[in-house]
Lab assay of single mutants.
Amino acid sequence: MTEYKLVVVGAGGVGKSALTIQLIQNHFVDEYDPTIEDSYRKQVVIDGETCLLDILDTAGQEEYSAMRDQYMRTGEGFLCVFAINNTKSFEDIHHYREQIKRVKDSEDVPMVLVGNKCDLPSRTVDTKQAQDLARSYGIPFIETSAKTRQGVDDAFYTLVREIRKHKEKMSKDGKKKKKKSKTKCVIM
């Protein structure tokens, strides 16, 4: 069974824990209790493949930012979460993405942009803004509501699919490099 290491990042209060708990335990946590770091595991079937999701729910508070490099190193894919009623959390996505790329030393890291709290009427981040940002990053965008469960499975499952595509691409690139290195030079 394939294991996928997913990391949920975003500013404090955007609903990272609520999304994760909704996926794992099928219930909505409405009281806000700032996370330092929590880890969850769940076995699911995605596109006919049974897999184990190892999900790291991270601290959004700035005082825990020193811990970010460590979990970013171990993560295979990242859910970059903002709240649709919090423009600052949307603007912060850029910083999370840049930090992930720096730590992973790669421009090509599996990510999904997630606009959470889409059940709320007080939207300050337009869907088109988020779609445009995701398009500019070359990553999928999904709106979710941890409260109603809308888009929750889709967000995590899409990230797994992005990781699969990335692994497939990397193995193809690896095979191309191996083929090239088999060419021999004969000096007579």
Rank of each mutant, 00 (worst) to 15 (best):
A83E: 15
A66E: 12
G115Q: 03
R97N: 05
A66V: 12
V81H: 04
A83M: 03
K88I: 12
V103Q: 05
K117P: 00
R73A: 13
E98Y: 01
V109H: 02
S122W: 06
M67K: 06
D126I: 05
Q99I: 14
T124F: 09
S106D: 09
N116Q: 14
S106E: 08
Y71P: 09
V81D: 01
E98A: 04
V112F: 04
R123H: 11
S65V: 04
P121F: 10
F90N: 05
D119M: 05
D69F: 01
M67W: 03
Q70L: 10
R73D: 11
S65F: 03
I93V: 09
D108R: 05
D126N: 09
K104E: 03
Q99F: 14
E63G: 06
A66F: 09
D69S: 04
V125R: 08
A66C: 11
A83D: 15
G75H: 07
C80F: 15
F78D: 00
V114E: 01
S65R: 04
S106L: 11
Q70A: 07
K101N: 06
R102L: 09
C118T: 08
R68T: 06
N116T: 15
H95Y: 11
V81N: 04
K117L: 15
L79V: 13
R123D: 14
L113W: 09
E107Q: 06
V112D: 00
K104F: 11
V114C: 04
R123Y: 09
D92V: 06
M67N: 06
V125G: 12
R68M: 03
D108Q: 07
I93C: 04
D108A: 06
N116M: 15
F78V: 12
V112N: 00
V125K: 10
V112K: 00
Y71E: 14
P110C: 03
L120M: 12
Y64L: 06
E91G: 03
P121L: 09
G77S: 01
K88W: 13
D126H: 05
E91S: 08
L120D: 10
D92A: 10
I100G: 02
R97T: 12
I100C: 05
C80P: 01
S122K: 08
Y96L: 15
T74E: 14
Y71V: 14
V112T: 00
R102A: 10
Q70E: 13
D126L: 06
K117W: 14
Q99E: 14
V103A: 14
N116H: 15
V125F: 09
V125P: 09
Y64F: 09
G115S: 06
G75V: 13
D126E: 08
R102S: 09
E76V: 15
V125W: 09
V81Q: 06
Y64A: 13
R73I: 06
V125A: 11
D105W: 03
K88C: 11
T74Y: 07
P121A: 13
V114R: 01
G75Y: 11
D108P: 05
V125L: 09
V125T: 11
A83W: 01
S65H: 07
S106Q: 11
S65I: 02
I100V: 07
D69Q: 08
K117H: 15
F90H: 04
S65P: 04
K88Y: 07
N116C: 15
H95G: 05
Y64Q: 12
D105S: 10
H94R: 12
K117G: 13
L79D: 00
S106A: 10
S65K: 04
S89G: 08
G77N: 01
A66R: 06
T87V: 08
V103N: 09
R102Y: 03
F78Q: 01
L79Y: 03
F78Y: 12
S122V: 07
T124D: 13
E91W: 06
Q99L: 14
M111Q: 00
V103R: 11
Y96S: 02
V112Y: 02
D119H: 07
I93A: 05
M111G: 00
R73K: 11
L79K: 00
R68V: 03
V109S: 03
E76W: 15
H95V: 04
R97S: 08
P110A: 03
R73N: 11
A66D: 13
K101G: 08
V103H: 12
K104A: 14
D108G: 06
R102V: 05
S65Y: 08
F90A: 12
P110T: 03
K104M: 09
R73L: 07
E98M: 02
M111L: 06
D119T: 09
F78P: 00
C118R: 05
E76D: 15
V81K: 00
L120Q: 08
I84S: 15
K104H: 14
R123K: 11
N86K: 04
M67T: 06
V109P: 04
P110N: 03
E107G: 10
V81L: 15
K104S: 13
V114M: 10
D108W: 04
E91V: 03
G75R: 03
D108T: 06
V81P: 05
L113S: 01
T74Q: 14
Q70M: 10
S122M: 07
D108N: 09
K101M: 14
S122P: 08
C118F: 07
R97L: 15
S106C: 11
M111S: 00
A66P: 11
E98I: 00
E107A: 10
F78H: 01
M67R: 04
V81Y: 02
V109C: 07
D69N: 07
Q70V: 09
P121S: 13
R68S: 05
D126K: 06
V81E: 11
S65Q: 05
R68W: 04
M72P: 02
M67H: 09
L113V: 09
R102F: 05
D119L: 05
N86R: 03
R68E: 03
L113Y: 04
Y71R: 08
L120K: 12
K104D: 04
S122R: 07
C80M: 13
N116V: 15
D119A: 08
G75C: 15
F82D: 02
T124S: 12
A83Q: 13
M67A: 08
V109A: 05
L120W: 10
P110R: 02
P121T: 11
Q99R: 06
G115I: 12
D108F: 09
I84V: 14
K117C: 14
C118M: 10
K104R: 14
K101W: 05
Y64C: 10
F82L: 09
E63S: 07
V103W: 15
H94M: 14
M111D: 00
V112E: 00
F82E: 02
T87R: 10
L120P: 13
L79Q: 00
T74P: 07
S89L: 04
R123W: 08
A83S: 14
Y96R: 02
V103M: 15
Q99Y: 14
T124K: 09
F90D: 04
R97W: 15
Q70K: 07
D126Y: 08
P121Y: 10
C80R: 01
M111K: 02
N116I: 11
E63T: 04
F78C: 04
A66Q: 12
D119R: 04
K101D: 04
C80S: 02
I84T: 14
R73F: 06
K101P: 02
Y71A: 15
C118G: 11
M72F: 14
E63P: 09
S106H: 06
A83K: 07
K104T: 14
P121C: 08
P121D: 14
V112Q: 00
T74M: 10
T124L: 08
T74A: 12
F82H: 10
R97Y: 14
R97A: 14
V114P: 00
K117M: 15
D108C: 08
Y64K: 10
N86M: 01
D119P: 03
N86D: 15
E76L: 15
R97C: 15
F82M: 14
P110Q: 02
D119C: 10
P121I: 11
R102W: 02
E63C: 03
S122I: 10
R97V: 15
S65M: 03
E98K: 04
E76S: 15
K117E: 13
D126T: 07
K88A: 12
D119V: 03
Y64R: 08
K117F: 14
E63A: 03
C118H: 06
D69H: 06
A66N: 10
G115C: 10
H95R: 13
M111W: 06
T74F: 06
R123F: 09
E76T: 15
K117V: 15
K104Y: 09
D105E: 12
C118Q: 05
Y64I: 03
R102G: 07
E98Q: 05
R123T: 13
